[in-house]
Amino acid sequence: MSDTVTFRVHRFKHGDAASHHDSFEFEPGPRSTVLDALTAIRRTQDPTLTLRHSCFHASCGTCGMKVNGQEVLACVTNVRELGTGEVTVDPLGNAPLVNDLVVDMGPFYARLNAVERPLVRESELVTGARTASGIPQPLRYEDCIECGICISACPIAATDPEYLGPAALAAADRVREEPRGGDVPFVLGLADAPHGAWRCHVAFECSEACPSNEAPASHIMQLRRSLIGRRWRALLAQPVGAGR
């Protein structure tokens, strides 16, 4: 294999009738990531290439995209390990396209906000941890880094624009597990709807693609068990003869 890798990068600008792919040559080092390649291409070949990124270490969740058809974080995807002389880069699916590799995360964030998940996992705080002077007590955040990879990988989201999606349903399950003052009945009501937890068809693509081991599909199944129990309890709580 030649040292040079051809990057076929998705391009779309506001006003374009359709998107296309542009090809760029990049010579990766042994530790070059796809994000390294894309930022180098933007720096040296095409400054109009638009992409989102921030932390470069799989923490911020902003560089989610599709590389050779699979959803990944570009910042931790090694170019050499892909093993191909041509790398195709596309934006995440099932989200409104804004520009080149950038999608509008607004609808995705709105779903996460709707289930009112707190960001700090209080059950795993080490309250007695000693910190250096001036350093605040470390916090344990939820695993989800809100990258949107799960909803891009989900086949159901391809046809159901109202589907809450894996991240929001996993967040709903976290509220169920650890309410932290949250309105659990309200959140379970959102999940127990036609476009909620029951819409999932057990492909587990979200869990496979998730870069932070949130395992959204497993959360959805746990949520379903809880919802089944909730329905049974509601049914048994009805007085005899009710509904006749």
Binding site: K66, N68, G69, Q70, E71, G93, N94, A95, P96, L97, D104, P107, A153, P155, A157, A158, T159, P161, V202, A203, F204, E205, E208, A217
Partner: peptide, 20 residues
Amino acid sequence: RARRRGVAGWVDVRGRRLGG
């Protein structure tokens, strides 16, 4: 503008894993 693939998204085998 969500670029949903519709039914094609169900049968698109690119990048799919075992569960997919």
